[in-house]
Computed example of a mutant assay.
Amino acid sequence: MTAHISQWEAFMLETLVSKGISSTDLLFFLQTKDVAAIEVYDTSFEYEDLLTAYETDTENITKAVLEGYSVKFLTKLGVKKLLSLKFDLEEGTGYQVNGNVFEDVSISNSKQELLRVILSSNWKLEKEENSIRIVPIAG
């Protein structure tokens, strides 16, 4: 079963990965409660929040780090930030935004599947001829 994490936890994990931390090191630092070692990689978040999440549900955060995750609920800005952090896509070059819809998202088929897993249930992917769209699901 896929780990389910908050949008904020996803941002922290993806920021750390983008800064070069390994899964092994991150889990070690969480196990040893060494937030200072995590902050060597990045100081843009309060990583005490990630430690608290780890202490609250060690199995879930460990699984998210090692195997991937699905975000519980994503906002429009959350989708935008994850496209940047996880897939190195920026608005205007990697996709276009039309209202609440992300259009012309150009990523490989394997990355599309990863994105499908990460997206919360309030978003869906729609395939287009040479790209995908990320569309909010009305609730």
Rank of each mutant, 00 (worst) to 15 (best):
L115C: 07
V65R: 05
D49R: 11
K63T: 15
D25R: 14
I134H: 06
V17C: 02
G20P: 07
E14D: 11
M1K: 10
I132C: 10
S23K: 15
A37N: 14
S22W: 14
A10L: 03
K63W: 01
E126V: 11
I132Q: 12
L77F: 12
S131V: 03
F87C: 04
A138D: 11
Q31Y: 13
R116D: 08
F87G: 02
L30C: 09
I134C: 06
T2S: 09
E48P: 00
T58L: 04
D34S: 15
S18A: 10
E113S: 11
E59M: 04
I118Q: 09
K63C: 09
T2N: 10
L50W: 06
M12L: 08
I21W: 14
F73S: 12
T75H: 11
V79Y: 08
I61R: 04
Y41L: 08
E39Y: 01
V117E: 13
F29V: 00
D104G: 06
K19A: 12
D42I: 01
L115E: 07
K86N: 05
Q96K: 15
L125N: 09
N60S: 11
W123E: 10
L114H: 05
F73W: 14
V65S: 06
Q7M: 12
S18M: 09
E113Y: 09
G78H: 13
V71A: 03
D42K: 07
N60R: 13
L74N: 07
